[in-house]
Amino acid sequence: MSVDDITAEGGPRERILAATAKLLAEGGEEAVSTRAVGAAAGVQAPTIYRLFGDKQGLLDAAAAEGFAAYLSDKTELAFTDDPVADLRAGWDLHLDFGLANPALYLLMFGRRRPGTVPPPAAVAGYEVLATHIRRIAEAGRLRVTEERAAQLVHAAGSGATLALLAQPAEQRDREVSALAREAVIAAITTDAPAAQAPGAAGAAVALRAALPETTALTEAERTLLREWLDRIARH
């Protein structure tokens, strides 16, 4: 699916988002202006400002809409009994999304400045990733903390996608992404449940994943235990 599939039907908001998605796909972020969007959507500039605030608000909304539409079209990628295989499938889905929607992907992941708040679409993508990591931890197969695993997968996955997007389409080697994926998976997971392996770190990671389901502790006690388990896992 591409951002062109976002419907242009409905009210002004839907038409504006559809026009923005089309301009992004055809000419990148530079092609998006309130005048161009207004002309394509059949609305006046004040309507755009009223609904989205400014151009950045419009771009953030278009990115979130495009990403949501893409995820909703991928319901066949339901969770299986193998959370590591699901992470692998999620990585490939992320790559496919980036290569199919380069301008939108760059808007989500390639325009960040240090200290700025990430766009809503990027936050949603990271939450999907965190869910994959949590399931691996719950299965006892995570060898590092959830936070470190998520950061590593996010950095390597988005980095590989951005690197491929920087190359001409005919020169892109998807195997580069696959090699990066397998290297990261090997670094953060174990073949067997970590709790069955010697050492306290694996057991700490597995127990940390189960804490949200624990009712025998108060919230303060869970917070303290979480800190202790993270410290054990890191060492």
Rank of each mutant, 00 (worst) to 15 (best):
A183P: 13
A194P: 09
A19Y: 02
A25Q: 07
A204V: 04
S177N: 10
Q167M: 13
V153D: 10
A204Y: 07
L58F: 02
T20Y: 02
D5N: 13
V43T: 12
G115V: 05
T34A: 03
S158T: 15
A220R: 10
T223I: 02
E213L: 10
A137L: 02
F67H: 15
L225Q: 06
R222G: 09
A216C: 05
V153F: 13
F79S: 15
R143C: 03
I48M: 04
A149C: 06
R174D: 13
A186D: 15
H154F: 14
L99Q: 10
R148M: 11
T189Q: 09
A155T: 12
P102F: 02
R231D: 12
A156D: 07
P12M: 10
G28W: 02
P168K: 05
S72K: 15
T214I: 11
D81I: 00
V184F: 01
S177P: 08
L179P: 03
L229G: 01
I48Q: 06
Q44V: 11
N101H: 08
P119L: 12
A122I: 01
I133Q: 05
Y105P: 09
G10P: 12
G53H: 08
T80C: 03
P114W: 09
R141T: 03
L129H: 05
A166P: 04
S33M: 00
A69D: 12
G115M: 10
A192H: 05
L71M: 15
F79I: 00
V37D: 01
A19V: 07
G157I: 01
L23V: 01
A186E: 14
L225G: 07
Q151P: 03
T218D: 12
A216V: 08
L129N: 10
T145P: 09
A68Q: 14
F97A: 12
R15G: 04
E138D: 06
A169R: 15
F109P: 03
R181I: 04
A201L: 03
V3M: 14
I188T: 08
A18Y: 02
V128R: 15
L24Y: 02
V3D: 14
T218L: 08
L217Y: 10
A201M: 09
A150V: 05
A180E: 10
T223H: 13
I188A: 07
A103N: 04
A85V: 00
A160T: 14
R208T: 00
A204I: 08
I48L: 08
L165G: 07
G38F: 00
A163G: 11
A155H: 10
F109L: 12
R135K: 09
G110P: 11
A186C: 08
P83Y: 07
R231A: 10
A139I: 00
S72R: 15
Q171L: 15
E182Q: 13
L164M: 06
A150I: 01
D230Q: 11
P120Q: 11
V184Y: 01
L93D: 14
P193Y: 00
A204C: 11
I6R: 11
E30Y: 00
E147K: 07
G125S: 05
V205Y: 04
V32P: 01
A64W: 10
P46C: 03
H154W: 06
